Amino acid sequence: MELDQLRHFVSVARTQNFTQAANQCGMSQSTISRSVGRLEEELGQPVFDRQTRKVVLTDAGRILLPRAETILSLVDDLKREIQDDGETGRIRIGAIPTIAPYYLPKVLSRFNEQFPEATLVVQEDTTSVLLKQLADGAIDVAVLARPIDSRHLEIESLFEEELDLVMAADHPLQKKKNITISDLEGIPFVLLSEAHCLTGNVRSFCEQRAVCPLTIEKTSQLASVQELVSLNHGISLIPRMARQRDHDKSRAYRTLTDPKPTRVIAMAWNPYRFQSRLIETFKQHLRDFKADDAIS
């Protein structure tokens, strides 16, 4: 049983597709298929049930997957520990979509200036997916928004960020000198889907103040929320870092009068995985990097 066979098996298991696994591994589909086939020959039984549109694990595959992931994680950690010089290596960074395009560019750029030999790989996904990837060792550190429900990961708050009200430039609320949360009662909201933690932040803030946001539309991207707001489909609450990057005159932003809605940005990592000196330096870089530095 070879390590490459296990890597190919795990990739197919995670993607449930030989073609996607081949692209992920940078190989042809036939190469991946042969590798998994040799593994199945050695085990004496199939690890996948090959269906029309996807492949699913057999009983043998379900037994093999967690063990294969553990073996590969141990090997990867061993290599990284032996090769750890504090300046070279790869850091796999996860971030949620409402943070990645706004906060990370300058963070990564400045880190690369200090450590030009380091390779930074970014994975953008929802909180639940990133937490699983941290647990599996697929990423090294993630930048998320609290609350974060995970018992086995280390969570450290970085900074608090305000959420700003966004509306169409000609919205009636624009006439008000001060806007409070109660002024939003009964006005349609455009929000991200429930998979995004920002929606939970918005709902929690409103409900704690006895305001029930009337959600009429949901989308999967923050840019789509902003565009729908421009078209007068509703209003929304947007992270300050996204507001700072938005110069479209069809939208207007306002700061709510106290209490102000906020979210807490945090980083998370798996303490049971090897943390190279380079990763530790990157985590300190995140601690030192202020929110204003990223969005200015």
Rank of each mutant, 00 (worst) to 15 (best):
Glu41Thr: 07
Ala135Val: 06
Val122Met: 11
Arg62Leu: 08
Arg277Trp: 06
Glu162Trp: 03
Asn23Met: 09
Lys176Gly: 07
Arg287Asp: 10
Ala118His: 01
Gly137Cys: 02
Cys25Gly: 06
Pro259His: 08
Arg287Ala: 13
Leu191Phe: 13
Ile148Gly: 05
Leu57Met: 10
Arg62Gly: 04
Gln174Asn: 10
Thr126Val: 13
Phe205Arg: 00
Phe48Glu: 06
Glu160Met: 06
Leu104Pro: 00
Phe9Trp: 10
Glu41Trp: 03
Leu237Ser: 06
Lys290Val: 06
Val56Cys: 07
Pro66Leu: 08
Asp248Ser: 12
Glu69Phe: 04
Val190Gly: 00
Ala22Ser: 09
Asp149Ala: 13
Arg92Ala: 13
Thr180Ile: 06
Arg34Asn: 12
Asn232Leu: 05
Gly137Met: 04
Leu108His: 08
Asp248Ile: 02
Val225Tyr: 11
Asp49Ser: 07
Ile91Glu: 04
Glu194Trp: 03
Ser224Phe: 06
Arg7Trp: 04
Met167Ala: 10
Ala60Ser: 11
Leu57Tyr: 10
Leu43Tyr: 12
Ala22Thr: 07
Pro172Ala: 09
Gln226Ile: 02
Ala210Val: 12
Phe9Ile: 05
Ile93Glu: 01
Ile32Pro: 00
Phe48Pro: 02
Thr98Glu: 14
Leu72Phe: 07
Arg80Leu: 13
Val55Pro: 01
Val229Asn: 05
Cys197Ser: 12
Ser128Ala: 13
Arg209Pro: 11
His233Gly: 01
Pro147Leu: 13
Leu192Trp: 08
Leu43Thr: 07
Ile295Lys: 04
Ala242Thr: 09
Arg245Ser: 10
Ile216Val: 13
Pro271His: 06
Thr219Leu: 12
Ser204Glu: 07
Arg34Trp: 09
Val190Glu: 01
Val121Cys: 02
Ser128His: 05
Gln208Gly: 10
Val47Met: 09
His171Tyr: 09
Asn270Ile: 07
Ile238Asn: 00
Ser224Thr: 14
Ile155Ser: 02
Val56Ile: 14
Met27Glu: 09
Ser220Leu: 15
Arg209Trp: 08
Ile216Cys: 03
Ile181His: 05
Leu78Gly: 08
Arg243Leu: 12
Gln133Thr: 00
Ser204Arg: 15
Met241His: 11
Arg243Gly: 04
Arg34Lys: 15
Ile155Gly: 03
